[in-house]
């Protein structure tokens, strides 16, 4: 079994475990009842979104220094996966917010920062599709770096912008133990899922590039 398949299997198992733990094992929260459970997946997806774009950031730097194509491929693939996790974040988030605070969107700092980052990296993909082959990798690497440098500034700005209007969402430390376990397992499951998707998609992209090279060699 390859490493990718192993990680894939592990993440699949953990996902099932997470679903069980979240829905059967974790306690039901008092105010929001069952709907609260979406929060485990929401917060884990948000984490993987930041993780994915962080990987893009590091890979972009590595590409500019070393100019090895594999770094560019990792940056591209991680961005794509990050954007997909973003879709999860921005569907689960509003659903949770609707039942927690009676509004679909509430400008919570982490959510808002995630949104801005998500939009930046959608721009990354649009840029790549608009650029010719020659400059594509270098220019998207530049954007991959600049986009991520914005994150701490954006995060700090949005927090300041809110001025502490919101109930603090980081109450994880006060959670009963069943909920802490659910939180931990779903976080682990989604992180492994990200890793699996990254490795799998990376390999697919590599094969695609190799195939193109062979096709072109045959044409010549």
């Amino acid at each position: 079994m390859t490493r990718t398949q192993l990680i894939g299997l592990l993440s699949a198992i953990l996902l099932f475990v997470a679903i069980y733990v979240v829905f059967s094992f974790a306690e039901i929260e008092m105010t929001m009842l069952e709907v609260q459970k979406i929060f485990y997946f929401h917060i884990s997806s948000a984490f993987t979104l930041f993780l994915a774009f962080g990987v893009t950031f590091i890979s972009s730097i590595l590409y500019l220094i070393k100019r090895r194509d594999k770094h560019d491929t990792i940056a591209l693939v991680s961005t794509e996966i990050g954007i997909v996790f973003g879709v999860v974040v921005f569907t689960t988030g509003p659903i949770w917010a609707r039942y927690a605070w009676n509004t679909w969107w509430n400008w919570e700092p982490r959510l808002t920062s995630a949104l801005i980052l998500w939009l930046t990296y959608i721009g990354y993909l649009i840029l790549r599709s608009a650029l010719a082959e020659e400059k594509k990798r270098v220019y998207s690497a530049v954007l991959g770096i600049i986009g991520f440098l914005n994150v701490p500034i954006v995060y700090f700005s949005v927090e300041l912008w809110q001025g502490g209007l919101h109930p603090d969402t980081s109450t994880k430390m006060n959670l009963p133990s069943t909920m802490q376990i659910a939180w931990l397992i779903s976080w682990l499951a989604l992180t492994l899922l990200y890793l699996f998707l990254l490795m799998f998609r990376y390999r697919t992209e590599q094969i695609k590039l190799e195939l193109e090279t062979i096709q072109h060699q045959q044409m010549n």
């Binding site: 649009i126 840029l127 608009a130 986009g147 914005n150």
Partner: peptide
């Protein structure tokens, strides 16, 4: 600089630049 050599450069510049200018 990175978006000027593309088709649709004005719109592309806006799409990439605006999120970065929110702070």
């Amino acid at each position: 600089g990175i978006s000027t050599n593309t088709p649709g450069k004005e719109s592309l510049l806006s799409v990439i630049l605006l999120p970065l200018t929110f702070p």
